[in-house]
Every structure is written in structure tokens, then in C-alpha cells.
């Protein structure tokens, strides 16, 4: 089961990956992070804003408690604290670090209690540090920003990111899309919901004339394949 969960979730490569998420829940974030932590060894750091680091949710998404053992979380509540935490990362991180997670990177810098000019300077400095860490230590850095909140902060983030993944909540769960990413299966607690691209990838595209022969029997077989995945 484990490998299937991972294959359903895009990998995070070294460099800065921007996750743009629509929808209210940070489920896409939890899935990406827990899947990546399951694949990698070593410590990981999470600089939190706006209480995205909900431990219940992390436990729910992780395959086992062990997955989260190397993860360290610190929460920021103001832009100043956020910048302070990001600035402390170079002293903590090495090439053995598996992952750095900075959800809602722009959020606190948008708060009205920080003057605009100062907020932008702090934000740019934080982004520069994350970018430099990703590059010099080849560490995957995952940052997120809500889709539909485009302003100077998200623009700068999009420019700095090496790649962008988009996620949206569907009826079947979280779907990812990006340059080389597409959600092929949705994982549910008890079963898999497949998508057409999944079968296309698995079986190839049937020649048009063959479609006429596809009947209930073959559909059962396909379901059986899907069930095995669980």
C-alpha cells in the first residue's frame, strides 16, 4: 500500500517547489510532505504560518509515526518571527537535511501591522535565504501560496520557484497538476479512485476499433487491478 500512496503523489526534487493550492484545507500540503518524508532519511524543518502545522492532520496523513520522527516544526505569528526563523535555517541545515517546508510563505508579510516597505524587504530576504539553501545544499524546499491571491509576494515566489505544482480539492480527494505531474489515482482510506489518465498510462490507449469490444468483463478486471493496489 505504501508505495502506491507515494506514487500517487508528486516527488519533491531539490530546489524550490511552489505548491499553489485552491480549496480550504491544506491536505495537499500534508500529503506531499508526509509522502516525501516517507521516502527520505534525515531531519526536516517546517517553518509554520497561520497554524497549518496541525499535528492531528500530519499524523492522519503519515503512514506511521516514524515518518514524522525527523520533522521539526516552529510556528511564526508575525512577519518578524517568520523572518527570524527562516534566517536560522542556514545554521541548522546540512546536505543531509531531507526537506524544508514553508507553508503560506507570504501570509504573515501581508499582515497590516508590518509597514509595506519593511514587509517586502523582510519577505525578499526570507525568499533569498530559502532559494540559496535549496541551491547550495541541494535540498528540496516546499513553499506554498493560496491560488488566487496574486500580489507582489506571490509574483516573487513564482519567479523564484524552480517548479510549480497546483493542487485542488476534488470530490475524490486532492488532485495535483504541474509541469511533469498529474494526479493519476486518488487515495481514499479504503479504496482507490482511478482516473482515465491512470489507465491510459497503465494500459496504453486502445486503438479506436478495439473500444467496441470493451465490455463489462474487462471493466471487472480493471477494478481488480485497482483493488490490488490497496
Amino acid at each position: 500500500m505504501g508505495t502506491d500512496t507515494l506514487s500517487a503523489c508528486p516527488r519533491l526534487e531539490p530546489g524550490v517547489t511552489l505548491l499553489r493550492r485552491s480549496g480550504e484545507t491544506p491536505n495537499a500540503l500534508y500529503r506531499l510532505v508526509t509522502a516525501e518524508l516517507a521516502r527520505r532519511q534525515g531531519s526536516a524543518y517546517w517553518v509554520d504560518s497561520r497554524n497549518d502545522a496541525v499535528t492531528h492532520a500530519l499524523y492522519d496523513h503519515a503512514q506511521s509515526r516514524r515518518t514524522l520522527r525527523g520533522l521539526r516544526i516552529a510556528r511564526a505569528f508575525t512577519a518578524y518571527q517568520h523572518h527570524e526563523l527562516v534566517s536560522s535555517l542556514p545554521g541548522r541545515i546540512s546536505s543531509r537535511t531531507s526537506l524544508v517546508v514553508v507553508p503560506r510563505l507570504p501570509a504573515l508579510y501581508r499582515d497590516p501591522d508590518v509597514p509595506d516597505g519593511e514587509a517586502r524587504t523582510l519577505f525578499e530576504a526570507s525568499l533569498t535565504i530559502l532559494d540559496a539553501l535549496a541551491e547550495s545544499l541541494s535540498v528540496p524546499v516546499l513553499v506554498t501560496a493560496r491560488a488566487g491571491t496574486d500580489d507582489v509576494f506571490t509574483d516573487a515566489l513564482t519567479d523564484a520557484a524552480d517548479r510549480t505544482i497546483e493542487s485542488h480539492d476534488t470530490r475524490e480527494g486532492v488532485a495535483f497538476a504541474g509541469d511533469d505531474v498529474q494526479t493519476l489515482v486518488y487515495h481514499h482510506r479504503d479504496y482507490w479512485q482511478t482516473t482515465i489518465p491512470y489507465w491510459v498510462e497503465l494500459l496504453g490507449v486502445a486503438p479506436e476499433e478495439d473500444l467496441a469490444h470493451v465490455g463489462p468483463a474487462s471493466i471487472t478486471t480493471l477494478d481488480a487491478v485497482a483493488m490490488e493496489g490497496c
Binding site: A53, T55, H56, R65, L68, R72, R75, H83, E84, S88
Partner: peptide
Amino acid sequence: WNKRRPETFKSVETLHAAD
């Protein structure tokens, strides 16, 4: 003037208990 001192990094387990 502005509060800068952030929280220290903690394990998920500690954060879970602390929260």
C-alpha cells in the same frame, strides 16, 4: 519594538502534546 523572538523548533510529538 517588534516582537521577533520566534518559537523554537520542536518535534511533532512535542508540538502535539503542547497544543
